[in-house]
Amino acid sequence: MISIENISKWYSDFRVLTDCTTSVKKGEVVVVCGPSGSGKSTLIKCVNGLEPVQEGRITVDGDEVTAKHANLTALRSRIGMVFQHFELYPHMSVLENLCLAQEKVLGRSRSEAVARAEKLLARVGMADHVKKYPSQLSGGQQQRIAIARSLAMDPIAMLFDEPTSALDPEMIKEVLDVMVELAQEGMTMMVVTHEMGFARKVADRVIFMDEGAIIEDRPTTEFFDNPVSERAKDFLSKILNH
């Protein structure tokens, strides 16, 4: 479904990604972890073309994201993305947040969009909050709505960039629960997270990055039970014992 082949990326002369290669099959859940600044966010943003790459090739469902004249808006409308800071539109109600792209990008009628929005809001447990504005909601609630907003586009895959790291501890679970459910329903997911419990539970593979390179890319249990690289061992011991 998602194929990343030998991509490299520079910010002027600073190399953020070095020859990264991996793939995510249909229905697979892949967790990306690694120390701060290792390039996780950058990698995931390259997948839907939010960040351009200088070398290498990325395809999603057969369409090349990195092609010169790629139709990025069409591509992006098929890939959901959830951000660390939710990024709900603060000037729109919850319902408007969910309807905007459905109507403007997919051309759904108002009533179709509303029906889809209401269904997804119910699914993430936010049915009672359609008329509210983001500022009236807790972080956990906002993130669940952000997930619903992505799902409203009926994406073929979902990207998550540290969806719980801006949340207070007591709200992390409500968001992870939604993500676990999504994973179990067979959604193709690429998730940057340090929630190792989540990784163990639903991830098929774990990718470990450091300094812009993919150091390990292995099935979940193998990764946790015997990480090969020193850097991954080091990272795991720090993160599991905090």
């Binding site: 939010l50 808006t73 992006r76 993305m81 990024e87 539109y89 000037h91 792209a101 403007k104 990008v105």
Partner: peptide, 26 residues
């Protein structure tokens, strides 16, 4: 914030739609 633009882009909105519905009102 740049994140607002990214949110718009990630749902497939084009440049003008993002300006019109997301950036300029804010």
């Amino acid at each position: 914030k740049q994140g607002q633009v990214h949110a718009g882009q990630s749902t497939g909105l084009n440049y003008w739609q993002i300006q019109r519905y997301v950036v300029l009102p804010q």
